[in-house]
Simulated assay, not measured.
Amino acid sequence: MESFTKRVKTFDAFPKVDPQHQVRSKRGGLSTILTYLFGLLILWIEIGGYIGGYVDRQFVVDNVVRSDLTINIDMIVAMPCAFIHTNVEDITRDRFLAGETLNFEGINFFIPLGFKINNPIDFHQTPDLDEVVQESLRAEFRQSSSRINQGAPACHIFGSIPVNQVKGDFRITGKGFGYRDRSHVPFEALNFTHAIQEFSYGDFFPYLNNPLDATGKVTNEKLQAFVYHARVVPTLYEKLGLEVDTNQYSLTENHYVVKTDEISRKLQGIPGIYFRYEFEPIKMIIREKRIPFFQFIVRIGTICGGILVAAGYLFKLYEKLLVIFFGKKFVDQGKEKKEGGLLDKRLPKMSD
């Protein structure tokens, strides 16, 4: 048993330098301490990165066409509710009277504090995974199809509209303009100034930011048309088993004043507010991942070995530079060589 233990002690896959051939110095000790501190820092960063994971973004083909998608809207239009007509029409010519599910509440028009008014909406940033998970509180509007105080100067329109996941548009126009209606809005009463609190697609997450949220347009033109073009990308967020299936969209806008034909005195368009949308055939998946544990261990070993090798070469280069600039005597100062080597021992004199 003792012989086996000695053999194990003697065997070393990475043989060390014998003590009698080692030289100590303050510079070497300092470099060793710095190397260990740097290695511990890298180890701490790698462990934190392994625990925290990383965010993986992928695009896949979206082969599911939903028929239960909703448009969530909360906005104020500077026109009485009794004068407003809402409608949804998609590429299949399927029409849906949005007024049957939306809520119309007559109020006085105002622009909430902090809204961006008459600013171009040309920038949108994909929210971070942590932000989405923290703000993913799903909600629903308390009521639907309610109409209150329709004679007030402005109309608060809010609710969810069921639509198909195909190209289409949601329109807000005046009664009698573009559609046959029992009543016709007087020309002087048209005013499509509006403020949008919420406009999103899919499940209603009121705390997630969208390009049209907290925006608005103010106009003095009676025949003004506001057109918003949205390209919607279905997006799935996944973290720690929690999935948030939502939609994000980029936006372009086009606004113009409808002209009147000088001869027939007919309008060459329909004034109103138009939200045109088109769904992309891809789906973005953003999920948090973590590398396998075995791969993490191999990575740690590789990094630690690389740090030691690099530190050794840097120290040798440092010593060489000192010799070149200051000489060997300066470099040898403060060095301490261990005793016990063959050259350190005095050989006995040979007797005659």
Rank of each mutant, 00 (worst) to 15 (best):
N87P: 02
L69P: 04
Y54V: 04
F104S: 05
P162I: 15
I33V: 15
V64Y: 02
P162Q: 15
D122M: 06
S160H: 08
I157C: 06
L34S: 03
F115V: 04
N63W: 00
E46Y: 08
L40H: 00
T92A: 13
V65Y: 00
Q150Y: 01
G53L: 11
L43A: 09
M79A: 09
N63I: 04
G114L: 05
I47H: 07
Y50M: 02
T86P: 08
K26V: 03
H85I: 01
Y36D: 03
E135W: 03
I117L: 10
D130K: 10
F83Y: 15
I121V: 11
I45W: 09
W44A: 15
F104T: 03
V77D: 13
L129D: 08
G159H: 14
Q134A: 07
D90V: 11
N108R: 12
L34M: 06
D74L: 05
V133H: 02
I76Q: 14
V61Q: 14
Q143R: 10
H124Y: 14
L129I: 15
F158M: 05
M79R: 07
S31G: 01
L113W: 04
L97P: 10
M79W: 10
D122Q: 09
G53A: 09
P127Q: 03
V61S: 14
I157P: 06
T70E: 14
H124V: 12
I84P: 02
Q125H: 06
H124M: 12
E135K: 15
G151E: 13
G106A: 08
S67I: 10
Y36T: 10
Y36K: 01
G48T: 14
I148F: 08
A139Y: 14
Y36F: 11
D68W: 11
M79D: 14
D90Q: 12
G159S: 13
S160K: 12
I91M: 13
G28V: 01
A139H: 13
Q150P: 03
Q125E: 13
L43D: 00
F38L: 07
R93F: 14
R138F: 05
V65N: 04
I71N: 06
D74M: 05
I45E: 07
I51C: 05
S145G: 00
G114W: 09
E131R: 06
I51P: 07
V88Q: 13
F83C: 10
T35K: 06
D74E: 14
A98W: 02
A152G: 08
E100M: 09
S145T: 00
D128C: 03
V77N: 11
V64C: 00
S146Y: 01
D130H: 05
S31C: 05
P112F: 04
I107R: 14
D62P: 04
L30M: 07
P112H: 07
D128L: 09
G159Y: 13
R142I: 01
H85D: 15
L41S: 12
N63V: 05
G49N: 15
L34D: 00
V133P: 01
V60M: 06
T35G: 08
T126K: 13
Q134M: 03
I148Q: 08
